[in-house]
Structures are given as structure tokens and as C-alpha cells.
Write a protein that binds this DNA or RNA. Structure first.
Length: 421
DNA sequence: CTTCCACAGGAAGGTCTGGCGG
DNA sequence: CCGCCAGACCTTCCTGTGGAAG
């Protein structure tokens, strides 16, 4: 009988979590993919894009647009926002507009881009373009046929367009209007790389860049407004302490005015507060969230590193642990790291790289923010770099243990444990 | 002041992969 | 299919250097 009740309790874990959940009204509104009904501090940008797009509602071709701006400046949100309004107005006035959003980081080849756009026009009578198998120009012909049959104006958004491999796709898309009799296509390219068009074919550049727009970063005050707006949608009233939103805004403003980062920061703070059953989000949780974001980033990077770099990190970690255990304070030199590195390579039967190359890989790890390597001079004892690990040493070790080759080595005691002063 | 450590980091060249045009 | 080229990845060889020790 007791066993039975216990079982009930255990099987209702989600029920309990749902009940205890006190922070969020609408969790989705705290994500950067959410499009709110109003976009603060982007009125000018919305109007600019809308005025370029408005010919679509009269059945004319809008100019192609190129939008620049760093991450988290609202490029995607603004274009999607304008797009939704365009679709609605089109339905209302009886001149429907096709609006296609494609993220080129996911759809990154010419074939898949054309396939994606074509399948947008597919109805139940026609066959879909398969993932693979057709010649690219056949997909293109099919696309033209479908668009023409559909008629009207089509707006295609290419987000992260700089991630597209090769400019063949852009070239064929930019010339598509000359192949259409019955329909019109306009392209909006979005990129966070200001120099992107410089590497394009000049014909593509002039065709796509009929209108150029730059989204400036938000300042701290603007980010604050955005956060406040989202917080009122996403969170229960009075769940945020007064100084939290200004803090999140200030931190994100330091990071080139990235609103996405500010939202992540606040959302994760809320999640952490919720997990601790706290009634309010306080500064403490923002600090924790900031740390969590950083640790997650580092771990994500470490996971995807090639095994040579992983071996170097492991060498640094082992030397660091040895130093702390034997009470030697402070930093590690590349010489020590290289010694352990070579031993580890022998153990794992990996080819070892030269010291020169390892030095470059150490610099690379420094740039990724996993370790810090600062050049110092120890006088008579040489000019070298001082290597320190980022705070999440134990977590990194855990990640490395997931790798078959390193599993046995994370507790490895290397022979080069002697160290001069 | 000079010396000299333990590297930093530039230059040039080799090897391998993968895309592309013919 | 082949040759070509660009670019990633490494090696070899090299010169340069901040500052404590002598």
C-alpha cells in the first residue's frame, strides 16, 4: 500500500514541477525568437523597410534590400515583424503576398536553398523536390514554373546570408525576375558581416544592394526598455527586483548592445531563481546566469575542438592540478605544457606536433577564451607566456572524460612533475 | 652595464583535402 | 576523370626580446 502511494507521487513529477513553477506566464516571450506586437526603438527601421516593401501590395516589385547589423540588433525580428504585417495587409486587400523566411546558416547550399523556396509553393497536386537527386538547374526551372503559376509578389528573406556557400545561389536568385512572366520576386538579405558584399560578384552586389540598411546597436537604455516590455509579457508581476533589469541591460550593452544576450541573461536568471524556488529574481541570479552562460559557451567550444587541442587543454589541466596540490601557486608555461603534451600523445598513440605548432594552438585556445595566455618576462629565466585556465576547470575535465581516448588519462600522473622554483 | 633564458612569433615551404572547370 | 588552385594544417628555421641575475 505504501509502495503504491509512493509510486503515484513519483509518476507525477511533472505535475509537481508544473505546480511549483511560479515565475513564468509565457516562457516563449523571453526567447529572442519571439516577435512581440511592438518593437521598441526600431520604429525608424520598421518604417524604412515597410516603405521599400509597400509596392508589393500594389502588385509591383519592391527593391531588393540588404540589411546589416551586429547580432542582437533586431534585424530578424524587424523583418519578420514587417513580413507578418505585409501578409495580413495583403490578405485584407486581396493582393496576397508570399513571404518566405530562410535562415542560410541551416539551409546553406545552392541546391537546398532552391529546394526550400520551391517546396514553399508546393500544393497537393505537385510533387515535392527531394532532398537530393535532382540537378540544380532542374530545381531552378521548377522554381520558376511554380512561382509563375502562383503569380503575385514573393518576398524572400535570406537571414545570415553570409553563411551561404558560394554565390551561385544568390546569382540565380537575383536574376530570377527576368525569367518570370506572371510573378515578381524581391529579396531581403540579412548579414552581420559589413564586408560581406565586397566578396560578392559585382553583378550580384548591385542587384541585391538596391537598398542598404544598417541597424545600429542598442544602448543600455534601449535594452532596458526591451527587457521591461518582455518581462511584463513573460513573467508574473513583481517577480523581478528593481535593480535586475538595469544590470542585465548594462551587461549586454557592454557586449556591443546585444539585445539577444540581455534576454538570455534575464531568462536564465529567471530559470535559476525558479529552480531555487525563489519568489523574486535578484542580482544574485543574474551573476549566476552570467556564469552559466559563460560556462556553457566554453563547454560547447571544448566539445567541438580537434583532439590535438583537447590534449593540450588536458595537459594544462593536469599541470594546473598538480601545481595546486603541491602548493605551487600561479601560472603554467608552454614548456611544461609541451612536456606533458608529448607524454599524453605517446600514451594515446597520437602523433605529437612541434612546439611551434602547439604554441599557435595555445594562442588559439586563448582567443576562444578557454585559457588565458599572457606574455611575461621572468628575467634571467626567460620570456614566456603565463597560462591560466578559465574558471570552469572541473567541468571541462568532465567533458574531456566523455572522449574515449582521454577517459583513462584524466587522472594520469605524468613523470615531468618536477619543477624549478 | 651586459648576459642570457625560454620562449614569442615571423617567413617560407611542404602535404593534403576538396571544389571547380575542362 | 584529370589537372589546377586555394586554403587548412604543420614543420623547419629563424630572429627578436623583457628584465632578473651577475
Amino acid at each position: 500500500m505504501i509502495y503504491f502511494t509512493k509510486k503515484i507521487v513519483e509518476s507525477d513529477i511533472f505535475g509537481r514541477l508544473l505546480k511549483s513553477n511560479g515565475m513564468f506566464i509565457d516562457r516563449e516571450a523571453m526567447r529572442h525568437t519571439y516577435i512581440p506586437s511592438e518593437l521598441p526603438h526600431r520604429v525608424k527601421e520598421i518604417n524604412n523597410i515597410a516603405s521599400v516593401m509597400v509596392p508589393a501590395l500594389r502588385g509591383e516589385t519592391p527593391s531588393n534590400i540588404f540589411i546589416y547589423g551586429k547580432s542582437g540588433t533586431g534585424k530578424t525580428a524587424v523583418t519578420k515583424f514587417v513580413g507578418n504585417q505585409l501578409i495580413n495587409k495583403g490578405k485584407e486587400t486581396g493582393k496576397p503576398v508570399n513571404f518566405i523566411y530562410i535562415n542560410c546558416e541551416i539551409v546553406d547550399t545552392q541546391y537546398r536553398l532552391l529546394q526550400n523556396i520551391t517546396n514553399h509553393f508546393i500544393n497537393e497536386w505537385s510533387e515535392r523536390v527531394p532532398f537530393t537527386g535532382w540537378p540544380t538547374d532542374e530545381v531552378y526551372t521548377k522554381l520558376i514554373k511554380m512561382i509563375d503559376k502562383n503569380g503575385g509578389v514573393t518576398v524572400i528573406i535570406l537571414d545570415e546570408v553570409d553563411k551561404l556557400k558560394g554565390d551561385g545561389a544568390l546569382y540565380s536568385l537575383s536574376r530570377i525576375n527576368s525569367n518570370l512572366k506572371n510573378a515578381k520576386v524581391s529579396i531581403v538579405g540579412i548579414s552581420n558581416d559589413l564586408r560581406f558584399t565586397e566578396i560578392l560578384d559585382p553583378r550580384v552586389r548591385s542587384s541585391l544592394g538596391e537598398e542598404n540598411m544598417i541597424f545600429p546597436p542598442y544602448d543600455a537604455g534601449e535594452i532596458k526598455d526591451i527587457l521591461e516590455q518582455r518581462a511584463t509579457i513573460a513573467l508574473k508581476p513583481n517577480s523581478v527586483e528593481d535593480d535586475v533589469i538595469p544590470l542585465c541591460s548594462a551587461l549586454a550593452a557592454q557586449e556591443h548592445g546585444d539585445a539577444r544576450r540581455a534576454l538570455d541573461l534575464l531568462r536564465i536568471s529567471a530559470e535559476l531563481a525558479e529552480r531555487e524556488n525563489s519568489k523574486k529574481i535578484s542580482k544574485k541570479f543574474v551573476k549566476l546566469a552570467q556564469n552559466k552562460i559563460e560556462v556553457d559557451r566554453v563547454l560547447e567550444v571544448v566539445k567541438t575542438l580537434p583532439s590535438q587541442s583537447k590534449t593540450i587543454i588536458l595537459s594544462v589541466l593536469l599541470q594546473h592540478r598538480h601545481n595546486t596540490k603541491s602548493g605551487i601557486a600561479g601560472a603554467i608555461t608552454p614548456g611544461e605544457v609541451y612536456g606533458i603534451y608529448k607524454e599524453l600523445c605517446k600514451k594515446t598513440r597520437m602523433d605529437s606536433l612541434t612546439q611551434r605548432r602547439v604554441a599557435d594552438l595555445i594562442s588559439e585556445l586563448d582567443m576562444l577564451g578557454i585559457i588565458t595566455a599572457r606574455v611575461i618576462s621572468k628575467g634571467r629565466y626567460g620570456r614566456t607566456r603565463e597560462i591560466n585556465i578559465s574558471s570552469s576547470a572541473e567541468e571541462i575535465l568532465k567533458i574531456l572524460k566523455e572522449d574515449e581516448i582521454f577517459r583513462s588519462l584524466t587522472d594520469y600522473r605524468f613523470s615531468g612533475q618536477t619543477r624549478l622554483i
